[in-house]
Nucleic acid binder design. Sequence first.
RNA 1: GUGGCUAUAGCUCAGCGGCAGAGCACCAGGUUGUGGCCCUGGGGGCCGUGGGUUCAAAUCCCACUAGCCACCCCA
Length: 424
Amino acid sequence: MPPSQPIKAARGVRDVMAAERPVWEVAETAAREVARAHGYQEIQTPAIELAALIERGVGQDTDAGGKELYRLVKRGSEDLVLRPEATAGVVRAYFQHGLNQGPQPARLFTMGAMFRYNAPQLGRYRQFHQLDVEAIGDASPAYDVECIEMAVRWMEALGLRGLRLELNSIGDRKCRPAYIKKLVAYYRPLKDRLHPDCQRRLETNPLRLLDCKEEQCAPFKAKAPRITDHLCVECAEAFAAVRAMLDAGGLEYSLNPYLVRGLDYYTRTVFEVLHEALGGAQNSLGGGGRYDGLAAEIGYPDTPAVGFAAGFERVVMMMGEEGEEVIAPPSALVLVVPDGPLLKEAAEVGRLARTMVPTAVDYSTRSLKAKMRAANRLGPRWVAIFNAEESARRVLQLKEMAGGEQREVGWDELPALLEAELTG
RNA sequence: GUGGCUAUAGCUCAGCGGCAGAGCACCAGGUUGUGGCCCUGGGGGCCGUGGGUUCAAAUCCCACUAGCCACCCCA
């Protein structure tokens, strides 16, 4: 029985159609170029992972690793989820394929679909796509800066302007717990005056108090102790080194002591690349940071690492606003248009032309006039027209659509002629 | 998960109790092998879904669904 309603795409997902796809291709190509220019190698990891990897790696108390996680129906004893981000899977692959035995750090990048069950909005989808770049196996803050630089360079290469880089350090396992205690001690007496969400945060995830944008809480936030004033010596030195290298490299940034990222695994450096023109809630094009604790969390040897992820949907959207214009190429350079029922002959001419340039064939039974109208919309550079009489002589009329000139060409001369036209 | 706005042709939208409309797009003809401009004609609609009010509902009311926006969260 047919469905009572025609079946549409699932909520929160979208199709990238032919008019938009070339923009994605530009973004993907630029991403590969930037990553490879820094010595990074492309890998692919699965979209499905064991639930334990994500829950341990991303953190069950985070949105991405908790309520937003897509869980697959168990088959047998396999408890699988759709990945909400790529880092945990890349780190898993790094160990599983022995990259920890090779030269350190391993410089890896990947591109692909991520999945989070949240309310869809412009620029935010349930299936979205990220560029993900990771340097695994070395604690030097120089790699933090390398990641930041790649993120910014990628977006700049796509013509995006009005980018803002925000930077913070959120300490490590040594100094952060002590800071959180101070933060809670500061906020506890103010609890009644915070708005409900923040009252909840105080109990569940105190760091998130710094993320609050409510005016009601703003005065308290301004006077709250700052993590950057409470870093241990090692974290403070690393943070200073990151800033010094950014300065030396001419990368502008602003320090944001309230920048706290949504995933549990971050330590020390965190950063975000924002775009001024995007709406307040979805103004983040990408972000990342150091995650020295993740490897141990998912059962591998303690290993320092740093990386970033950036969203294609938002980057592509901003390219449409202000980036360089990308024009979708016509689907074919040559369109073969037989006048009459000449299917085999049209196919043969198509094969000949295709040896040189992308070639489509119009096999429809419409009038020649209708086929020419269609040809005009498809936008090929040439149309190859022939009727039964010309077919018998193995010739065709090659018409250049832009100027309208056409001349008779033998089928066997066609490839050489097209080549000459393209190179000349 | 919470609140606001919206839903009519492929697209953009008008109509706001009384025959389902426009522009663009699509198809065909005007031109006996040849596109664009122009002219003519044509195909297309459960007016998001379900219920209610009414003699009568695209129009008013309710619910649901979806989209957008804000919150939340983040890419």
